[in-house]
Design a protein around this nucleic acid. Sequence first.
RNA 1: GGACUCGUAGCACAGUCUGGAUAGUGCGAGCGGCUUCGAACCGCUAGGUCGAGGGAUCGAAGCCCUCCGAGCCCUCCA
Length: 629
Amino acid sequence: MLSFKSLIDEIENNIHKILDELSVSDISFSVEPAKPGFGDASSNVSFLLAKQLKKNPKEIADMLSAKFEKSQNTLVSRVESHPSGYLNFFADWEKLNQLILSESNLDEFGSVDLGKNSTMIVEHTSVNPNKALHIGHIRNIIIGDTIARILKKSNFKVNVLNYVDDSGLQVADIIVGFRHFNFPLQPPLGKKFDHYCGDDVYVETTEKYEQDPSLDEIRKNILKELEDGTSETAQFADKITRQVLENQLETCWNLGVFYDCLNFESQIIRSGLWRKIFEKLKEMFLVEFETEGKNEGCWVIRGDNNEEDKVIVRSNGTATYIAKDIPYAAWKLGLLEDPFNYQKYEKIQPGNHVLWQTTLASSNEPKQNFTAEKVITVIDSRQARLQKIITTLMSKFKSANDAYVHLGYESVTLSADTAQTLGLNTDGKQAQMSGRKGLYVNADSVYDLLKNKTMEETKKRHSEMSDDEIKKIAHIVSVGTLRYEMIKQDLDKIITFDMTKSLSLEGDTASYIQYTHARASRIIEKSQRCPSIDVDFSLLTDASELDLVKTIGLFDSNVMNAAQNLSPKVVARYCHDLAVSFNSFYEHVKVLDLGDRKLENSRLCLVNSFKLTLKKALDLLGIVAPDKM
RNA sequence: GGACUCGUAGCACAGUCUGGAUAGUGCGAGCGGCUUCGAACCGCUAGGUCGAGGGAUCGAAGCCCUCCGAGCCCUCCA
């Protein structure tokens, strides 16, 4: 890949050669894009040599820069030894412009080969199918989807899975509601079925438990019946959860999130995978039977150092929650024989991206393979302890100890103001969402709110547009805004969601970034020319132009960083950097009506490179780059 | 009590993995910029003992230790 990294590589190679001449080795110096005002790339190598050579960094920098001037340089035009001791390098911009701008016109620009075409599973979403998705689930979904996109760009063969937890207590609760409290199967007019199940059936049913503890018996019985697939209750529950799942998927698809396969917990339970993995655990002495103490009669996994033992099989012989995750994790890594058949999901995903689902029944479709060498499971960090147990177990089953990765993230909480609008006074503190208490902001309503807002904004600017066109743009901007809010900060920072502040369209937002793309598109459109890379690159000399080229050239480095660290925000920040750089360029130099066609063409080439690169970078975030907005 | 995470400007966050120059961005505040390729924009100003203390280092927001504050987990719940 030819990009800014070519310059960095050249500098690194030449420094290495100089160090060899000096017979110095084992120095892991860095060469990085320079801060503004310090050239184009900088190295700290003189600091690291200071001790060995017993000279101060500045003397070493002087010596190195003199030697560097004599080495084979094609992309470096000049070296400077800064009084601080840094070596600052200045690029030959005519060559670098050509290199970066030509490369940026290729489809695979920004791709890196971290994965070497190896297989990878990204599992995300994994929500109980008893309610609509809320803003907390959306964080999970967007992180997972973005990671999958970044890993694909990094040459991993990625399969995206959604684990549908359709046999747990939460599902039992709405079944109790339908069966014992006679909630009608039809939602009120105009309400989606998933909203109805979550807002009404689930919340009101759990309320009743509090008033009448004797209902617990009913709940347990329902749960038991769910595990037996042949029971009438289980088949009824299957109908209900399938309908909720379909509604949840509609929400995901609307946000540009797609899957490769749906795995159902109920099927994993009925598949017998648990018995197999339990035998294996026993053979490997990873579980122990407790004959005394508080866990008497249970099978447990011993806790590390100070941690408590974890019960995985109760004294009555039933498996606990974590136990269900163990066979699934092993299945994902291909450690167990696959008991499933596969069929296509009933509804077609937008874009015709095929969606499979597991089944225990026979199927006319060929057997699929969704297992992978590495697995990333996106689950919020409140489950870190359980996930750690799974990770440890998997590392004992499979020699590679990073084969199973729990990608954790902090939760989404509600701001005091937003909690208040939902009827909860928190004394100015943020509040945890709760499905059971009905305290959440659901994803569909956030999207609707954003869409109305963006439609108004778009109308203001484009009185000439048809309603259809305005809706299309509003959709793109709303989805972008929501997605960007969910990944622009680090995974281990809590997001405090506020109905008004989080939906801003100004500042560090998706719409700011999308706007620059629209600006670039308009310039190209107005030029009435097809941008070409057959231009005079030496004409691009303004600081704002070179800065933009440089930022474009850093695309692949950012993709690599994001993929290595499983950090979607790296790409988000890169998109923002690109937009800032373009806006600065836009203010500083004009592209059209210069009366100098050669210069116009050079700048058009730059504008087009920016546009192509931003589009690719936004695509990694699942954000669409509009030509008008 | 133990595990994990966080603490950087009034607020929300980058930068910490991989130590080096002048600690960045957005919101908010103050001022300025559309007869000009789109103002969902741009420029300028003010605002910081990088939670506290100690240590190793020529050099710390970053590494190590201790402490303080916040969150979260620690069920034969899921």
